[in-house]
Write a protein that binds this DNA or RNA. Sequence first.
DNA 1: GGCTGTGAACTCATTCACAGCT
DNA 2: AGCTGTGAATGAGTTCACAGCC
Lengths: 211, 211
Amino acid sequence: MAEAEAKVLPEATVARLTHYLRALNALEAQGLERTSSGVLAKEAGVNPAILRKDLSWLGSYGTRGVGYVVRELAEHINNTLGLNRDWRVLILGAGNLGRALSGYAGFAIRGFKVQAILDVDPAMIGSRVGQLQVEDSRDLASVVEREEINIAVLAVPGQAAQDLIYELSDLGVNSVLSFAPKPLVVPRGMNVRRVDLSTELQILAYLAVQS
Amino acid sequence: MAEAEAKVLPEATVARLTHYLRALNALEAQGLERTSSGVLAKEAGVNPAILRKDLSWLGSYGTRGVGYVVRELAEHINNTLGLNRDWRVLILGAGNLGRALSGYAGFAIRGFKVQAILDVDPAMIGSRVGQLQVEDSRDLASVVEREEINIAVLAVPGQAAQDLIYELSDLGVNSVLSFAPKPLVVPRGMNVRRVDLSTELQILAYLAVQS
DNA sequence: GGCTGTGAACTCATTCACAGCT
DNA sequence: AGCTGTGAATGAGTTCACAGCC
């Protein structure tokens, strides 16, 4: 029953949809009511053909010869991405990164709310981070239940991240954003996205050497 | 002369090479001198076939029937990625994220050194961040020269990031890691990698809805 | 005439499967 | 016999190019 279903949209398409959303918001802020794949693609930094192909996954929301209605299209993408409801986020790890993430403007996107932040370090527990107070990692289960957490962010070292993935899975938190430098073994049914800063820097080093 | 040359390795391969490096270090720490594509692939979280294909780009460093010498292979990947020298990093933006990044353990990878951190906000300038003092963004050119910066990290809002890209390009800093939520227009010859936290969260929301 | 929606062509990346060396 | 290195097969993702509708 609670089995993970097949993904409907290619992941690359989903990533671009978020860019179209931002672009549509920018156009709306400029007072535009209608737009075309050319204009929108430019604003989103992609090529118009793939934009149209991406949108075609959602159905026909444009008008041939005319274009798209900005607000209508934005609304439709919002619904498709599941952004028409609230997501309650838990941050694990109250070090530099965890603290920064809990305050980071990018997390203040409509619909995402950081509900709690946990750490294992007794010296850290109880300290303030923005509106929140750092809680004890050992209370993970009760915090998840109390705050009805949907999404966890792992800002902890590699091995701790791997251990937490299993705990979170058991607690029914199936969506995780991990900053651990190590690729994690992911339990069935769980969705994990990784942001790997050290890999990004190393890729830049390689590219710099090439040029 | 200073034209960017064609990339030699596929970008996906470069990204995985960094994982092999980490995996090799882990194996070496366990005291292993030799390994095989199967063992290494498992540690790195990839399939053995693509690991061998990736390594074949670097030449033949394994022995058929035997495997790879851990230290030798690690050294070779290091050289290929340009990690056998120092990279001097500048952080632009001393907000939550910029400060966290300058202290983040992931940045302490051998060879990457944060040399300076800048901000536009007068209230921020002069404050301490770890070993560093926040300097004035208007001094960008002189800081880049003084610290011989190779890599810049953009931890500033969208439009500021776009403006800075051009300035950095003019100053000869051709490698940039951007945390701005907006895809940037990249001047010729410049290498930009993006980390987009809001996109990652939105993708997680989508995946959560699917499952 | 203009712009969408989409099949077909193409490019890029991964996996398979096996020849070749030790 | 065992494990690498790699051509061939497959799959995923992007771009092209145009038919179809306004």
